[in-house]
Amino acid sequence: MRWCWIDRILVLDKGARCVAIKNVSLAEEHLHDHFPGTPVVPASLMIEGMAQTAGILTGHARGFKEKVILAKIGKAQFDCEVYPGQSLIYDATLDRIDEAGASTTGIVRLIDHAAPTRPHAEQSEASDAPLWQTAPQIGVIELMFSHIDKNMRGLGFPEHNFVFTDQFMNLLKNSGFDPGS
C-alpha cells in the first residue's frame, strides 16, 4: 500500500500539465507528531505530493509504459507553513522528457478556506474561475524523474509497472480521467 499524498486530479493535459489537490486533515496521524500541539504539514510530504502529481504527468506522457522514479529534487522552496483545514494545489508542468527521463517544474498554491476574501479575485480577469486557479503561490518544486528500465539496465526490476499501480489508475478514473487516453 502506497501513501497517496494527493486527493484528486483537477487537470491532466497530456505531456504538458497536471494539477492535483490535497486537502490537509487533522485526522492524518503524523500531524500529531509534527509538531505536538502545533500541527504543520512536513515539507517532505509536500515534495512527495508534487512528485506524485508530476510523476503521473510524466508517466501519462508515455502511456504509463515507463517505470517513473523520482531521481532528483533540483529545488524545493516554501514561503509559509501549511495547517490542517487548508488545501494544497500542486500544479506541475513537464519541461522536458526523453528516453532516459524527464524534468518538471511545479508551483505549490495554498487555499486557505478561513481567509475572509477570495485571494486576488479582484485582480483576476476570470473572477468566476475555480478557487484553485486564483489561490496564491506558496512554493516552487523542480524535480527530475528517471525511466529506470532505460537507466539501470540489467538490475532485474520486475516486469510489471510497480510505480503506476491500480491506486494511481483509480485516482485518475475517480477524478474523471481515462488513464489510457
Partner: peptide, 14 residues
Amino acid sequence: ESIDFLDIVFRLEK
C-alpha cells in the same frame, strides 16, 4: 551523479 548528467543535458538544451 548519474541523474545530474541528464539534468545538465536538459538545462544546456534550454
